[in-house]
């Protein structure tokens, strides 16, 4: 049992061992969502964000697409106008959190151990520890994985899927669920386009097949090309500051 929120993590002992020996069966019709517990905690996180006027974004991608590099650039370029906080999710190490910390941003690292995704429960505890400021923008960098994180709502308002031109241009139809559940797609490392076989028009067509209304922004964190478009999109999502 988790002491902070009362959620059960002990699945080994049934709460009661009261057997009915009178030979009848009871059928319980539950119709209960299997991820209900996660979804409830996600709604709780969402309420926390709304109450504190925080824009929360869940950053998802395969490993190595440049999530952390995109964050480093964004935090450095926009820190004079936006108050940022970051939650980093990785199986092991605090290397990403160290990189974010070096930009002067408030950061918490979650290590999932063997886990392949962040869930709403982990994010809730991270929030309790870091206490992000009101009117801030919170990036949650998920574990690099295009499969499992798709199912787990963290309570974010926006889900940003990042792919890079060093990957296949058919990623969107190979991992459709992640693209289908996202609200923005960033194609990163466009400075490498002359050296790779990645076809950006094909990639855009695949993205449209999976989710016809998913906006796509092409960027290079190395040259800075396209970043202004990403910054405009981000600023358009930041809620107006609350009146004191």
């Amino acid at each position: 049992m988790c002491a902070t929120c009362g959620c059960s993590t002990d699945t080994h002992a049934p709460a009661h061992d009261h057997r009915h020996d009178h030979g009848h069966k009871t059928i319980l019709h539950l119709e209960q969502d299997i991820l209900q517990q996660n979804n409830l905690l996600a709604e709780r996180n969402r309420g926390f964000f709304e109450g504190r006027n925080i824009l929360a974004l869940n950053l998802v991608s395969s490993p190595g697409s440049g999530k952390t590099s995109l964050l480093e650039r964004t935090l450095t370029d926009l820190r004079s106008s936006i108050d940022f906080a970051v939650i980093e999710g990785d199986q092991r190490t605090s290397r990403d959190a160290d990189r974010i910390h070096a930009t002067g941003t408030k950061v918490t690292q979650i290590n999932t151990g063997k886990g392949c995704h962040l869930d709403a429960h982990m994010v809730m505890h991270a929030l309790q520890g870091m206490k992000p400021h009101a009117d801030s923008v919170l990036f949650i960098e998920n574990v690099g994985n295009l499969v499992c994180p798709a199912m787990f709502d963290l309570g974010e308002q926006e889900r940003v899927v990042i792919m890079s031109v060093t990957e296949g241009d058919d990623k969107p139809i190979k991992y459709p669920d992640m693209f289908h559940s996202s609200t923005l797609c960033i194609i990163n490392k466009t400075d490498l386009l002359p050296y790779v076989t990645f076809d950006i028009e094909k990639a855009r067509a695949f993205i449209q097949q999976v989710k016809h209304d998913l906006p796509v922004i092409e960027v290079s964190c190395t040259t800075g090309e396209g970043l202004s478009q990403w910054y405009e999109w981000l600023k358009s999502k930041v809620p107006a500051a609350q009146e004191a």
């Binding site: 009661h16 009261h18 057997r19 392949c116």
Partner: peptide, 26 residues
Amino acid sequence: MHELSIVMNIIDIVDREVAQAGGGKV
């Protein structure tokens, strides 16, 4: 391997519902 998380969630739901129903064998 999110399937394991899904199985653990199912066990939690069943634990809770069986306890609420007064116990028994599933």
